[in-house]
Design a protein around this nucleic acid. Sequence first.
RNA 1: GGGCCCGUAGUCGAAUGGUUAAGACGUCUGCCUUACACGCAGAAGAGUCGCGGUUCGAAUCCGCGCGGGCCCACCA
Length: 772
Amino acid sequence: MLPKRYSREIEIKWQDKWEEEGVYDFDENDEKRPIYSIDTPPPFTSGELHMGHVLSYSFFDFVARYKRMKGFNVYYPQGWDTQGFPTEVRVEKKYGRLPPEEFRKKCVEWTEEMIKRMKRQMKELGFSADWRYEYRTMDPEYHKKVQLSLIKMYKKGLVYRDKYPVYWCPRCRSALAKAELDDVVKKGVMVWLAFEDEKGGEHLIATTRPEMLPACQAVLYHPEDERYKALGDVLITPLGKKVPLIADKDVDKEFGSGLVMVCTFGDKMDVVWMHRYALAMEQIIDERGRMVNTGVKELEGLKVEEAREKIIELLESRQKVRKKKALEHSVKVHDRCGTVVELLPSMQWFADIKTPAKEIKAMAHRIQWVPDFGITYLIDWVEGAEWDWVISRQRLFGTPLPFYVCECGETAPAEELPFYPEKAAKKQCKCGKEMEPERSVCDCWVDSSITPLIIAGWPDEERMKKLYPVSLRPQGVEIVRTWAFYTIYRSGVALTGIPPFETILLNGNVLAPDGKKMSKSLGNVISPSELLKDYPADAIRQWAAMSGAMAKDRPFSYEDIHYAKAFLNKLWNASKFVINAGIRQEKPARLKTVDRWILSKLNATIKEVSEAMERYEFHKAIHAIHRFFWNDFCDYYLEYVKYRVYENNEKEGALYALTEVLEKTLLLLAPFTPHITEEIYQIFGRGSVHKQRWPFGEKVDEEAVKKGEMLKEIVSKIRQYKSNNRLSQGAELERCVVKGSIDEELKEEIKHVCRVKEVVVERSEGELAVEF
RNA sequence: GGGCCCGUAGUCGAAUGGUUAAGACGUCUGCCUUACACGCAGAAGAGUCGCGGUUCGAAUCCGCGCGGGCCCACCA
């Protein structure tokens, strides 16, 4: 007997049991079943799942469960993306500043706590990952593999060290991440400086950073700007330096005079242009924010703001300033101290993405993209990339870059892995000096771009043979340019030459019910843990399935989740009815038309759902199940057979059909609602529903379908009559006339199902009609 | 500014170029019928953003316009 109501207690019971019995374990020794592996995204360990996680991880879980039932040996590990700036911020807030090693230890402790919480939520949602293969990017084992992958790329010439500008806080003397910057509107001055062409003609350039003039490398104009087209290719700065004059489409014709000077480095756009035209890098600001190597002795040693005033003064005295105008503009400041940041050239590590770009694109084309337009995000990105991937970060909680560097500029890979600079062995450079272990850590995408290798046991060749490439990479559409791209590049092109996954499945995001992005500041965030207080996991999972097409964003819908919960209730109560009526698994000799009708509908539904599952169209699958079970089975078939069940009238066929429909529906629902289906499935005494095979859609009896639909229509018309006449559906009618071609069997059904004493049939080929 | 996605009842959303454009929520009417009132039966409500085109036929394909969203870049 089923408990009176379905509840979360039932879900928790099964979650514990599944874990205990290892129901979802990947079978290492199975030689027969094909392997289906899933490269699940390792979520960043923030400590709480958000609705986007719930949506996407539900999708992954549907796939895993479906494939298991289809007979695959499913390999479904789950990892954690642990390292990064947000954790550093939170740990520093809690413990203050600590020495690096102690700080990292605290970060690890913190992260372990976060993982514990998130894992609990995943379990509560019924995700069927195999936790024996859990990985964490902060583990020494993981570090080792990331480092090995970088050394291999280094040896192939794909990883190198070069100068690159980073955001720098002159006050804190530290490199900053983008996330540490705030935009602040400040008062400034725009000055128009007089440049000269080779014939002595004067051309004005508007700038808010005249102090950068000594580092001016080029002047740019828009290719369609008539004023500068015929000017030649050199211009002379007010300081007398000759610089190239270049046409570039990114210049705004309307701004100032339509000319812009490129300096090392006034702003981010200078960096773009420097790479595009291979301009020189001339550093004139040092780590303390003071001017150096400007070639203008009045500026040397001054702070940036002082230098700005000074050079205006200087240029005015040389009559090179034509106009000045006060303005307000936005500048980037360090979020913690408010100091204006500078872009400073510094030594960074790069991964070459320009040289292998073609191969990356070609490999992306060998992967199946679902939906197919997803690949355009990657192609556009590769084609638009202006420079190589900067893989180093000046942070603490990250994978150390496994290299040594020397004053002389030489670099060398580490020999012992995992490599930690504090404990690194000494190493001598070719030049004779002692090399320094690199102290920067990796960009987080360096960690996560080898997950297919990690789960496939790389570099163990035996395991790789078995598990690489992975079958499926599910991920968010918004990280195609990062995670998908970097994975195809590193795991695929650079390290194995084989596409890292066969199929990539892209999911969209969850918006707030108001259609806007969920954000704390808008106060429209819905948290999974709050939701779990009001709705069972199986309702939340159905909501995910109902959330529309892949790669599309959708607002969160309380209506859907409400409906999903109501459906669980329906399933529960219908099951109680079937159980009370009596389970019958042997097919009786005779089935009535209605029995054959519902079994045909069932088989059609199985086919429809199977096709949708193969295409990852979960909303179609769940919709087909809902429609069949609620509308056809509960609303009609159950009503059709009640008299047979209660009055023991040709009961066997009814019991068989009821049992068959319930059993098969449970199987179809199992990937979506694993808990409730498991609980009900126990009546069959065959163990876990999740160990069963996916049902096969058998033959549809066209004649029975036709008759069944006709009966449905007649019943509906009689119900309509009763409703219009304010009668209860249980009310007995004396007589009705059915116009249409129905047989004696259907006539008898109408009498019983609609409680009509006398049914008269008038044969007619026209439209069905019922008169009273 | 570049790329991509989208525009369907009050709301959210389905519809290989082919009957009367699913379904859910909400609304209205009736029904406590021995699975379920977390329910049942019934009803009303759109002709698919606008304009043009292709077609025997367009929500669906093409063009333009209008309006959203996402990602990226930028404000010298």
